[in-house]
Amino acid sequence: MNSSGRLDSLSDAFTKNFITFAVGLIINCINGAFVYTYCKSQVFQRDPRYVLYIHLVINDMILLTVSVMLQILTYSIPLTFAPCCILLLILVTTNKNSPLNLAGMAVERYIAVCRPLHHSQICTVQRAYALIALIWVVSFFPALTDVFITLATQPFAVFSSNVICYPSYVYNTPYHEAHSQVVQVLLLSFVFLTVIITYLKVLCAARAASGSNQASARNARNTILLHGVQLLICMLAFIAPFITIILVTMWPRGRTTIIFTSFLFNNVLPRLLSPLIYGVRDKKFSSHIRMHFCCKCLNSVEEKVKLVGPQRRSRLMLH
């Protein structure tokens, strides 16, 4: 059974789960390569910009893992209410972490361009970790509130019953709906205004700067613009259920396919954006990735050549 509550055939269920698992595994492997590069290079660990970036990547990996796990579990193993709430707690928290982290990264770029003399004092690694902790606290409380609303409105026996572990099915009371709308509007409005204001400030700084400062401001402006694009994709994830309802109403026979496609494009594939936008685009990060992985490939080839060499010599001596 999928998140729509409708049974799929065995072949359809296997195909959807295989696609979700394969795509999720590939994206997590790519993201894992960036995390590995960060952990191996102290130059990134001493820069708050990369600290925030790698937190975004790790957060996306957690979000993707839980999303794929829930997708597979809804097809295979019925979950009781309690473990489902725990998984949804992680899912909702990490989902709200992403836009807040984008806002933090946009502010850091604004300070680097518009307040360069104060950047080293304001943007430190310790403050970056403090901001990450604050982001988790701010995102965790709305997710925990959903659980408290369920405790207050549902009988306690519901926690031992089997459920379809999907947010709209578990948190289905009018209180949940009102709470979700308020939190989403406040969260996205705050992040959207932060990105817009920092972009305009950096844009003005780019026009006023000259030479290398202008190039640096232009790069920061483009980075914040990409923050805005990723924020729009985050917003798309929030409005995706309404789009899905419209599409299902228009094509009811393709209900399961529409819901699966919406899940794939709104919950799975966007997790690949962070490494593509920042890791590949950033020259320092991309050069370190090539250095780490290309050197490993060359070393493995050299080791194979060294092992093959003595074998060939021994064969020649025998002949």
Rank of each mutant, 00 (worst) to 15 (best):
N95H: 11
A82Q: 10
I62H: 04
V68H: 05
T80V: 04
P78Y: 10
Y75E: 09
M69C: 12
P83I: 07
L91E: 09
I72A: 15
I90Q: 07
S67E: 10
L88K: 05
N59D: 14
V92W: 08
N59S: 15
M69F: 14
T65Q: 05
L88S: 06
I72D: 03
S98M: 08
I72H: 01
F81H: 08
P83N: 11
P83C: 12
N95I: 01
Y75D: 14
L88R: 04
L64T: 07
S76A: 08
A82H: 06
V57S: 07
I77T: 15
T65K: 04
T80Q: 11
V66F: 00
S67Q: 06
L64I: 08
I90R: 01
L88M: 10
L70W: 13
H55Q: 14
N97P: 00
F81I: 00
P99N: 01
L79T: 11
L56R: 02
T74I: 09
P83D: 12
M61W: 04
D60S: 14
L87F: 15
N97G: 02
I62E: 05
Q71H: 13
L87K: 09
C85E: 14
I72P: 00
L73R: 04
T74Y: 01
N97C: 15
S98E: 10
L91F: 15
V92Y: 10
I58R: 03
P78T: 03
L89P: 00
L89T: 09
N59A: 11
C84V: 04
L64F: 03
L73V: 11
P83E: 12
V66D: 04
K96V: 01
L100V: 02
L89I: 00
L73G: 00
N97V: 01
L64H: 03
P78V: 05
D60W: 04
I86V: 15
C85I: 08
N101E: 02
I77Y: 15
L91K: 13
I72F: 05
L70F: 02
M69W: 08
L91A: 03
N101L: 15
T65W: 06
V57I: 15
C85V: 14
Y75C: 11
I62A: 06
P78Q: 12
L100T: 02
L73K: 08
N59I: 04
C85P: 02
L64D: 12
T65P: 00
S98F: 10
T80R: 14
V92A: 07
L89F: 10
K96H: 09
T80Y: 03
K96I: 05
L64M: 10
Q71I: 05
S98A: 13
C84W: 11
L64Y: 03
N59H: 04
L87W: 03
T94V: 08
Q71V: 06
L102S: 06
L63N: 05
L79Q: 12
